[in-house]
């Protein structure tokens, strides 16, 4: 099977099932046996096409199947059914060719390093096993270290690196062989805001725009894919349930209006009264400033016609309006709408 040049990654009816034995309290077999066998479809006839040079975001709640997909694409897991083709090579039949085409970063990638070696020595090892020629190895290592901003720390022992530095080194490792395709599985998980942003900027601007790499970027952070990806696939229960540009996906959120309102001196009883109003699909209230007595209300209206009655309620109840803003649906709204679950951030 070959992939048209247009696509770097193509899956067709890709399926993966896990079987696991679980323990249940008071199960008859107790500690040393028994339990119940459960089968979970991690990937359920997944069809996906990622274009060459595309920065593709894969969004999904925990357990959606994102990591399973990445592990199949990098040949670590064999699929149970269907096909996956990476850079024109079948992951089941042409594993070495696939491995030469990809750079991979796992969500716990820093655990794959050797902690008592320096960053440089770690990369030297991984460069060797990734077929980086000996003659240009040193230069390539320093290049990728410079790319991720770790050149000055190259000879420090890995265990002294901060979390952000470790993740950057994992990214540098993925880039060692200068592969055309990068599989990045939750590359910013657990990082602080600044480190996350640095890594995102690097992926978007340097790897994507400047070097034209194909990037599959999995995450459960909605804002990440919203800001940086060309297209986003939303995954749930092993399937792609929506796939489009971030803007188009936002448009898939249920039509309606969101009003973000800050009021003063509104009691809990008044909030509850408002909840019962016709035309209000949802209401979230949180204290914004207890000293000033300000409460922030996020009201989802079934349609804009419900808004006058809300404002009229404030007037009647002598509730002071501090701020009012109507909002467009966000990618988060689309995500929640499609997966039926809240996102992490």
């Amino acid at each position: 099977m070959t992939t048209p040049d247009e696509y770097s990654i193509e899956t067709s009816n890709l399926t993966k099932t896990y079987t696991s034995k679980i323990r249940i309290k008071n199960n008859k077999a107790g500690l040393f046996g028994g339990g119940e066998t459960r089968t979970v479809a991690a990937l359920d006839n997944l069809n996906l096409k990622i274009r060459r040079g595309e920065l593709f975001g894969l969004l999904g709640p925990n357990g959606a199947g994102k990591t399973t997909l990445v592990k199949i694409l990098c040949t670590l897991l064999p699929p149970d059914g269907g096909t996956a083709v990476v850079n024109g090579f079948d992951v089941a039949k042409q594993q070495m060719k696939v491995k030469e085409s990809i750079g991979t970063l796992f969500s716990v990638g820093e655990r794959g390093f050797f902690w008592r070696l320096s960053g440089y020595s770690n990369l030297e090892f991984f460069a060797a096993i990734n077929n980086v020629p000996r003659s240009g190895r040193q230069q390539r290592i320093m290049e990728v270290l410079e790319l991720v901003g770790l050149k000055d720390k190259a000879f420090e022992v890995f265990q002294k690196y901060s979390g952000g530095m470790k993740r950057k080194l994992a990214l540098a490792r993925a880039l060692l062989g200068d592969p055309p395709i990068l599989l990045l599985d939750e590359p910013t998980t657990g990082l602080d805001v600044t480190s996350s942003r640095n890594i995102r900027d690097f992926i978007k601007n340097d790897l994507g725009k400047k070097r034209g790499k194909t990037v599959l970027y999995t995450t459960h952070y909605i804002e990440e894919v919203s800001q940086m990806c060309d297209r986003v696939g939303i995954m749930n229960h092993g399937k792609i349930i929506a796939l489009d540009t971030p803007e188009a996906l936002k448009g898939m959120a249920k039509k309606g209006e969101v009003a973000d309102i800050v009021v003063k001196n509104m009691s809990e009883a008044q909030v509850n009264s408002l909840r019962g109003f016709a035309g209000i699909a949802g209401l979230a209230a949180e204290v914004q400033d207890s000293v000033l007595g300000q409460t922030r209300l996020r009201i989802r209206l079934e349609n804009v016609d419900a808004l006058p009655s809300v404002l009229d309620f404030f007037f009647r109840e002598k509730i002071k309006l501090v701020n009012f803003r109507q909002e467009e649906p966000t990618l988060e709204d689309a995500f929640i709408e499609l997966t039926g679950a809240g996102a992490s951030e």
Partner: peptide, 12 residues
């Protein structure tokens, strides 16, 4: 297990 995965995804 972690470095094993890293080695297995390399062309080695």
């Amino acid at each position: 297990p972690w470095s094993l995965e890293e080695v297995l995804v390399s062309p080695t």
